[in-house]
């Protein structure tokens, strides 16, 4: 079976900053893979490369076996994306926006059902500009889900959510993985990784410092202790 995501020896340098420094990892379909790391570890650069908004300086990135850079619409339809800055037009209301995104797909998730699942119907009349951070997160997640993608790439999907919102996001992500979707999410919360992920990739300083199942990476110390040890190690 094709992996959802394969990252091989990826380097990406921005001027004096090395964002990714030879990272390699993969994520299977039908599972949740958490890319865990502190701020500046290279998580968002990784997501940008996976969604085709950026291109590695060297190394290769494949999503569903395809190079995301300049990939065609058929590929993009199979990949649902949630970016950290949301990317929602500020003057739009949620349902027209989701209906519009749904109209780009042949067999989308019915918008009313999706909105109900994510509690969006409670603020359907609010424009994006006037929404709370948590409300925007839900719309952005709905935008990623609406095309019923085969791979979900989610950059910090639960940031800014209250515990109820976080639990709902985790449930949805779990359900999607259980029906065969390859979910890759970034987070700096080892709690989130422990709660929702099957596999973990720990990034620090643009390199993979650990990868495997949650149990493997957590080892005998537990994920929290392991995470701090791995990400507070000697300077790169």
């Amino acid at each position: 079976m094709t992996d959802a995501v394969v990252v091989r020896d990826v380097r990406r340098v921005f001027g004096p900053v090395t964002a990714l420094d030879g990272a390699s990892w993969e994520a299977p379909l039908g599972a949740v893979t958490a890319v865990l790391g502190p701020n500046g570890a290279g998580k968002s650069t990784t997501v940008d490369c996976l969604v085709g908004l950026d291109r590695p300086g060297s190394g290769t990135v494949r999503v569903l076996g395809t190079d995301p850079w300049h990939a065609d619409a058929g590929h993009r339809a199979r990949v649902g994306v949630m970016l950290q800055d949301g990317g929602l037009p500020t003057t739009s209301r949620p349902l027209p926006l989701l209906h519009h995104l749904a109209a780009l797909h042949r067999d989308p998730w019915p918008v009313e059902d999706l909105a109900r699942r994510l509690g969006i119907d409670g603020f359907a009349r609010t424009t994006v500009r006037r929404m709370s951070g948590g409300q925007r997160q839900r719309i952005a997640l709905a935008a990623a889900l609406v095309g019923r993608p085969d791979v979900l790439l989610l950059d910090e999907p639960s940031a800014g959510l209250d515990p109820h919102g976080r639990r709902e996001v985790w449930r949805l992500v779990r359900e999607e993985a259980d029906r065969g979707v390859g979910v890759v999410l970034t987070t700096h919360s080892f709690e989130e990784a422990e709660r929702v992920a099957d596999g973990v990739v720990v990034l620090a300083g643009g390199r993979v410092v650990a990868a495997g199942t949650v149990a493997d990476v957590a080892g005998t110390e537990g994920l929290e202790t392991t995470y701090f040890r791995l990400t507070e190690g000697p300077p790169r």
Binding site: L53, V81, L83, G87, P89
Partner: peptide, 21 residues
């Protein structure tokens, strides 16, 4: 200008619409 700041152009670039669309 405001869509660019809000990241709308980035997000739409990842949907089937793409930059050309």
């Amino acid at each position: 200008g405001f869509d660019r700041r809000a990241g709308v152009l980035r997000l739409l670039g990842t949907t089937p619409l793409g930059r050309g669309g």
